[in-house]
Design a binder for these strands. Structure first.
Length: 294
DNA sequence: AGCCAGGCCCTCC
DNA sequence: GGAGGGCCTGGC
């Protein structure tokens, strides 16, 4: 099915910029319009950009049923031109926008997003992807589309039943205990992530960081990528480097802001779509590498 | 070999 | 309140 869409939409940077960990490139496809395979809300989806829009296939829900959800997931209703206008305050963001025009923040399943970013502590994207995929394969339910097989991301109950020991076997390391605890909390209904979409930024942050293994950085990722908090501003080592070198190194005395002051500064500086600015700066910085200062 | 990764938590001062 | 070390594991 084709979702007609002529506004900027770059699937490659959107799906491969470290927001989500389940997207894989299809093999032997036309290089101009590669298929991306992934799992979205209990559906196996393959998707690609075409001249006219976004084309996709899905199962077990058919394309007609999944179309609205996918538009939602891809945030096709975000008006990128006005967002760009809002965050384009300097040449650094401008360069990111020029390089990755059409990169969008995703609107993911909050549960999968939370557990995925809990797994990101002191890790890296290939390993996080492996952890998430392994959790699905071992504790989720099978999905198939056109002969390809993947698994749903496990529910809170499924992960709670799995337990720390089995999660450690999958290579989650010290994160396994946190995942088990949070899965138990969610399975018992002691936190409802979807209602946090309606909560204020501060309230959502407080609720999330009360969870074991969830600190300021992970909470901001979850809020940005799944809870509609586009002002969220995750500060990891890449963003910290980028801010310090690109924005703060020339401050009087070269005084560096401590981490606690960094986010308020960024949210003030970049405005209500600070999370979009974050994503463009992060993606550009990460692909440049830690040594690049230009 | 030893250090570091897209953090978090706990202990100390 | 904030600096510093420990934590699983894989990769260089």
């Amino acid at each position: 099915m084709l979702i007609p869409f002529t506004q900027p939409m770059d699937l490659e940077s959107t799906l491969e910029s470290g927001q989500a960990f389940r997207w894989r490139r299809g093999q032997s496809d036309s290089p101009d319009h590669p298929w991306f395979w992934g799992v979205v809300f209990d559906n196996l989806v393959k998707i690609r950009r075409t001249e006219d829009g976004v084309e996709f296939f899905s199962a077990p829900d058919g394309e007609v049923r999944l179309s609205a959800l996918l538009q939602d997931y891809l945030r096709l209703r975000d008006d990128l031109s006005s967002i760009y206008q809002s965050i384009d305050t300097d040449e650094r963001v401008r360069a990111g926008i020029d390089d990755y025009t059409g990169m969008r923040i995703l609107r993911q399943d909050p549960w999968e997003c939370l557990i995925s970013f809990m797994c990101s502590s002191a890790s890296n994207i290939p390993r996080i992807s492996k952890n998430v995929e392994d959790m699905g394969r071992n504790f989720g339910r099978p999905l198939s589309l056109e002969g390809q097989s993947r698994h749903t991301f496990p529910t809170a109950r499924e992960l709670a039943v799995a337990g720390e020991a089995r999660l450690r076997e999958l290579g989650l390391g010290f994160r396994a205990a946190y995942v088990e605890k949070v899965a138990e909390i969610a399975a018992e209904g002691r936190i409802d992530l979807f209602t946090l979409r309606e909560a204020s930024y501060d309230d959502a942050l407080a609720e999330l960081t009360a969870l074991p293994g969830v600190g300021d950085k992970v909470a901001n990722c979850v809020m940005l990528f799944s809870l509609d908090k586009l002002e969220a501003f995750p500060i990891d080592v890449w963003i910290k480097r980028a801010l310090e070198e690109w924005y703060l190194s020339e401050r009087p005395g070269g005084a560096k802001l401590v981490a606690r002051e960094l986010r308020p500064w960024a949210q003030q500086h970049f405005g209500p779509y600070a999370g979009y600015a974050n994503q463009y700066l992060f993606h550009k910085r990460r692909l440049q590498g830690k040594g690049a200062r230009a």
